[in-house]
Design a protein around this nucleic acid. Sequence first.
DNA 1: CCCCAGGGACATT
DNA 2: AATGTCCATGGG
Length: 213
Amino acid sequence: MKIIDVYQKLLDEFGKQHWWPTTSDNPKFEIVIGAILTQNTNWNSVEKAVANLNKKKLLHPVRLAKADIKTVQEAVRPSGFYKQKSERIVNIAKYIIENFGGDVDKFLKKITREELLAIKGIGRETADSILLYAGSRLFFPIDAYTIRFCKRFGLIDGDYDELQKFFHSELPKDLTVYNELHALIVKLCKEYCRKEMICTGCPLNDSCVYYKK
DNA sequence: CCCCAGGGACATT
DNA sequence: AATGTCCATGGG
């Protein structure tokens, strides 16, 4: 089974996921911040932190850059690693101000992947999530779920760059496909393809080499 | 009590 | 080039 067939099957079963979920009036910047806050953290916890930031009116580059660090830490605490993450989100707010005059749209349009990776606290997955979901640019994020699923299902076993090359070469150059497939793999891995597999009811049973009944 | 979550930086081997 | 450790809260 090819990855594009996996996409179709998951889409038929789960429907569109409509990522990246946002709640504020500044969704692009919210995605940039959320991509950092969700590093190795449950999404439910991230939602709390984002809501706290929004309540404090900090989902804006200038406000966040100028905010008292203790205030930021207090807001971000529920998402864990709060000292690191506070520093990281303030850091990128300052970067957008210094290099793009605080214009988030311009930042998302002009920034290169290499430039993103050079910012402390932005690794490959965070960079690709920002580029795809905030910047509408064709970069496929590879997370722990994707690596696990690809290996188990029998598609490909490799590291981040190898898997990304695979997705980039196999998939059509289509933002909706990139957007939805990544989100659908996350959903699949949360519900069925967990660390401890729950194969009963999995929509990919027919083609999975690890299927146990 | 345990394990883990939509990673990344840095140190060690 | 691999592998290990730390960061930290909240939920199952």
